[in-house]
């Protein structure tokens, strides 16, 4: 028996599902057909979805949507406009992007962007508000004390 198989059960199944998850992680912006993803995993669509959900707590489709919105949050934080972000994370329509974004985060992409830009400018102008005082003091970052 190969060493791997002794280590833990169903190792090949795990590897296939993990590879499919990593495929979603790196191809979220493309027009991913989840039928292809289950094919990549060499599992039937039904079996694949069931195993994926068992491991990650959500279906591949739910996971793909969450990854896209999380990547959108990073792009918006870095200042990429909403319309551009929408296409960069794989949405074809702005309204479906905004709708899903609001459903998952509670606010619209433009509100999120405003919040993040405000936070960034606060960090730039008053960084010491975001750092525990003891560190800042020891580092000599307090200039007015």
């Amino acid at each position: 028996m190969p060493e791997d198989l002794k280590t833990y059960p169903r190792i090949y199944l795990y590897r296939r599902v993990v590879q499919a998850k990593l495929f979603i992680d790196s191809h979220y912006a493309a027009d991913i057909d989840l039928n292809n993803v289950s094919g990549e995993a060499h599992l039937s669509k039904f079996h694949f979805i069931r195993q994926f959900k068992k491991i990650y707590g959500e279906t591949p489709h739910q996971y793909l949507k969450r990854v896209r919105i999380e990547k959108a949050q990073l792009l918006l934080t870095s200042g990429i406009p909403v319309s551009e972000t929408c296409y960069l994370v794989g949405f074809e329509s702005l309204s479906s992007f905004s709708g899903l974004f609001k459903r998952l985060t509670g606010i619209t992409p433009s509100e999120y962007m405003r919040q993040q830009q405000k936070l960034k400018s606060q960090i730039r102008s008053q960084p010491l508000q975001f750092i525990p005082g003891c560190f800042a003091k020891k580092k000599g970052w307090y200039t007015d004390h």
Binding site: T7, Y8, R10, Y14, V18, Q19, K21, I55, Y56, G57
Partner: peptide, 21 residues
């Protein structure tokens, strides 16, 4: 939540393990 899946993923990303699960 699932150590085998986490292990496989981190290993695929090049994380060095001194002990597998």
């Amino acid at each position: 939540k699932d150590i085998y899946a986490t292990y496989e993923e981190l290993k695929a990303k090049g994380v060095e393990f001194s002990k597998p699960p």
